[in-house]
Each structure stands twice: as C-alpha cells, then as structure tokens.
C-alpha cells in the first residue's frame, strides 16, 4: 500500500509539473484532472469514501467541464493555436 501511495503522489506531482510546461490549454486542463483523480484514490485509502466520491465528481468532472466551456468560449475551436 505504501508503494501505491508513493506512486500516486509522484504521478500527481508529475502532472502538476507537466501542467506548467504544456503549451496547449486543453491538454493542460485534462492533465489537471489527473491530480483530482489521484487525490480521490488517496481519500479511499484514508477510509473516506464519501469525500472520495465528491472529489472525483466535482474535481475531476465538473471543474474540467467549466474549464472546457471557458476555453471554447474564449479561443475559438478548443484553442488549437499554441499560446
């Protein structure tokens, strides 16, 4: 279990570093949902399944949805241009 937790933390950190250096905004938003997914799995290990479900639905789904709407509203079709 400890290796699983360290793997999750390192995956989330890699996603966080990746968001900074990704140019395409849509890809960055999708990568940012990886962080919410990892933290919801950690909540399951912490014996808090209620919080895990809420985090998975709100952090991973609804936040991504709001960001996708904002991107599609501001820069045309999914902002294919780089920056």
């Amino acid at each position: 279990m400890i290796y699983m937790l360290f793997f999750l933390v390192i995956m989330m950190l890699a996603a966080g570093v990746g968001i900074i250096f990704i140019k395409n905004v849509l890809n960055a938003v999708i990568v940012s949902s990886v962080i919410s997914l990892g933290i919801s799995i950690i909540f399951v290990f912490l014996a808090a399944p209620d919080v895990a479900i809420t985090e998975a639905t709100i952090g991973s789904a609804l936040t991504t949805v709001i960001f996708i709407i904002a991107i599609s509203k501001t820069k045309g079709k999914y902002s294919e241009k780089k920056e």
Partner: peptide, 8 residues
Amino acid sequence: PGGVIIAT
C-alpha cells in the same frame, strides 16, 4: 455527488 453526476 449525485447531482453533479447528473449535471455532467
């Protein structure tokens, strides 16, 4: 969470 799933 259920409401958010329906909205998604």
